[in-house]
Design a protein around this nucleic acid. Structure first.
Lengths: 159, 159
DNA sequence: AACAATTTAGTTGTGTGCAATTTAATTTGA
DNA sequence: TCAAATTAAATTGCACACAACTAAATTGTT
């Protein structure tokens, strides 16, 4: 028998009720973990005045000061339907500027303002504080990270 | 030195740029995985006409036909601000009914309609199909599930 | 060159999430 | 007992996500 669900692996039997039990839904745990992490970030990011998705955009921009909406979307796996309004909010908060590319008028180039760039310093403590909260022994964290990467690449393959 | 980040664990050094590198953000992977999983569910759930959060509510209701909004929220970690509009949408789609409790007029009891209950049969293949997509060897899946549970309980502790 | 196909942002509409507040019902405690 | 505190839903307002579509610019093809 091919093992495909947690409950099958644990109990070696198939049962419709069992398969559908919420507790067995690993996806529900990922869904919940995502919201818990966002909630935790909310507190940490409050002092620099950005949301978690905005913080992710800043992470990209701290690595590369100028980037098109398209490239940003590729890194964050978000489309213009999400990014355009979010970037407008960040612009009106003085974190970045949006300008049409001279070379290709279809593209919009996002670049950090002084203010946006300056937040990097304040944010540098955040990843450590976050992982302190998760508080896993290094090896287990590394194993978890690897499996998560594997899962992501398999999910991405199905596109 | 206490190991707190993936990059520290791997390279034994601390570097602000490194810590902030998007690739090192395990939280970003969880955030991305959640959206990928939801995307995958979208296709599977299309034929029964529900969204992923609605499907989660159905999972609970398939276990317990009548439940208050409060109890449902406790299981899904969602508040009335999210649940009330969603349950209204599900009600207008004929999946469930909402009625004030006679014993305690503050509570609203959700109960499945015939239609809502009947979807259970069609949905029974979904968890397996989902895990087929993730496609991990049983042991690794189980290990991942355990770590995820640990992370969740630690995150929940901080409330 | 000219026109079709493609690409990039933006727009629109729907569905969550969640903080903050409101309303109504119930419980508590002086 | 009865006002204060608590509880359960609902409401309001904001910020994502994302599908579907539009508009404008660029590229490809003949």
């Amino acid at each position: 028998m091919i093992i495909t669900t947690i409950s099958m692996y644990r109990k070696d039997k198939i049962d419709m009720d069992d398969v559908l039990l919420l507790e067995n839904q690993i996806c529900f745990k990922i869904y919940t973990a995502e919201r818990e992490i966002t909630r935790l970030y909310r507190g940490l990011l409050e002092e620099i005045g950005v949301t978690y998705p905005q913080y992710l955009a800043l992470l990209v921009l701290w690595e590369k000061e100028r980037i098109t909406v398209k490239e940003l979307g590729k890194k964050l796996f978000l489309d213009s339907g999400t990014l355009t309004p979010m970037l407008k909010r960040m612009e009106s908060n003085g974190l970045l500027s949006r300008e049409r590319s001279k070379e290709d008028e279809r593209s919009v180039i996002i670049s950090l303002t002084e203010k946006g760039a300056s937040l990097k310093e304040k944010a540098s403590c955040i990843p450590t504080r976050l992982l302190d909260s998760i508080d896993l022994e290094g090896g287990e964290l590394e194993q978890f990270n690897q499996t998560l990467t594997t899962i992501l690449s398999k999910l991405k393959d199905r596109e």
